[in-house]
Amino acid sequence: MSALLEVRGLSVAYGKVEAVHQAALRLEQGRIVTVIGPNGAGKTTLLAALMGMLPARGSISYAGEEIMRFEPEQRVSRGLCLVPERRELFAAMTVEDNLVLGAFHRYRKRDQTIAADFDEVYRLFPRLQERRKQLAGTLSGGERQMLALGRALMSRPRLLMLDEPSLGLAPLIVRDIFRVIAGLRETGVSILLVEQNARAALQVADYGYVLETGEIVVEGPSANLASDPRVIESYLGLVSSGAG
């Protein structure tokens, strides 16, 4: 089976500082793959580069096409979608307008099925429907993450990239969000999940990579990684026991 996303030798540098070094990863259609690693390992940089938001070197093959030279907008219209760590919502616009803009590239293509996706997003997140006339800036942290996810779904992505969806959220909401993520797989969306919350991420993912100081140091099926002592060590410094 050919991969939906195949990344080879990807390096990203901020000036002289290389934040991601020669990363390689692979994601098959319909899978959830997670990249975990401690804060500052380069996870966010990796996603930003995949989305085309940062200049990078190497090769990114998506759905059989080399997309390295494409602008982010062109990647969006091919079905890539990033929900960034900072959410990047349109704070001074309504929830509904945020969702409408999520489907921007589909409006440009005169897609007639957008209305149905509104219903679907509101079904997943009834809270958004209640607040659809409210400004995005007035939402709570959890609602913002729902809106960010909803906006992403409105673009009808083939590959959804999520950067720290649990960041700053209370445990109960984290559970909800991960339930939605797991559910998305059923609809055929492939997901690349970047998380610091390693346990939650490995629970939903099929396969995982551990990124440390810009390099992929360990990879494997999630179940194996969850019990790999190197993962815990990379997170907690000297600790190599007592976690489990």
Binding site: S166, P171, V174, R175, E195, Q196, N197, A198, R199, A200, A201, I232, Y235, L236, G237, L238, V239, G242, A243
Partner: peptide, 15 residues
């Protein structure tokens, strides 16, 4: 700190 369960949970996610 390294053996504090609350810290472990905060760092590695819900146990």
């Amino acid at each position: 700190i390294q053996t504090d369960p609350a810290v472990l949970e905060a760092y590695l996610g819900g146990v």
